[in-house]
Design a protein around this nucleic acid. Sequence first.
DNA 1: TACTTGTTATAATCGATATATAACAAATAT
DNA 2: ATATTTGTTATATATCGATTATAACAAGTA
Lengths: 147, 147
Amino acid sequence: MILCVDFSSETALYTQLRDQIIIGIASGALKPGEDLPSVRRLAADIGINIHTVNKTYALLREEGYLVMDRRTGASIAEMPPSDPGFSDHLSGLLRPIAAEAACHGMDAAAFSAFCVKIHQQVRQPAAGSAVPAPSPAAAAEKQKPGV
Amino acid sequence: MILCVDFSSETALYTQLRDQIIIGIASGALKPGEDLPSVRRLAADIGINIHTVNKTYALLREEGYLVMDRRTGASIAEMPPSDPGFSDHLSGLLRPIAAEAACHGMDAAAFSAFCVKIHQQVRQPAAGSAVPAPSPAAAAEKQKPGV
DNA sequence: TACTTGTTATAATCGATATATAACAAATAT
DNA sequence: ATATTTGTTATATATCGATTATAACAAGTA
């Protein structure tokens, strides 16, 4: 599992790491119980500050994706985390995106098919995905028309 | 079409306005050619600065949702905006969300059904949706477990 | 004892956000 | 012509988040 960041992205570094780890869990590249590198190691490998990695781990722990063991460090939690408010969380994330899709001519069926495709891509064991993790902000930059 | 902002939200004010206007376009509450209030009027009505509204309008114009007419001000553009990179943009937005859903036990079918539901909600003419526009950040706050 | 772990404290820098005040060119209305 | 409106730009300021730097801490391991 290779973790990296894009310093030119508008997305915060700790958010980039968070997304990559979550995608790694979803794809199976990171399995429950698996240990993650220490905050100092990961920070040194990527070339960023310890606190940035620590912020990522703390956020993932709050969201239920990581568990902290003072002996072995951080490791992937046993999914799924009990989360009664996840539906509302997901709705809030998807609503503006669904609206964007609708404005661009995608009906419910087309949007559904697109979401399925992305979901399946995420679930696949990342064939050659050593890409710098295309963040939403990076994609948003590409989306600027004609500039 | 009622526009409002949540000052306690983590989402930027200009982003909140942007999302609401896009949702308004998707739902049909804002129709192509329809005029939007001037930056000064909207800023005064909501109680925020002119530049914040101006930033929202400039962003929506860059994205193709608004057209500026020096006579009548801002108005809804004729959709959809020609956008060859929209697919990549949408992928970048959906990928971390699909991963989150997968981590919470949602398979492709369940995720698709959820996305369709949100899409249909957005397309509906907003029955009594005078709510302060549940932003992703606000939903993310709710999602924090046990705090 | 030495080393590692996550965590916290403190401080500094930088950019984004939001505000305030002001002015501009262009179009409209009187 | 004058006044008013439009979006736009300039300048300055205050605040907050993000990131880095240095340092220390308690706890567990070798």
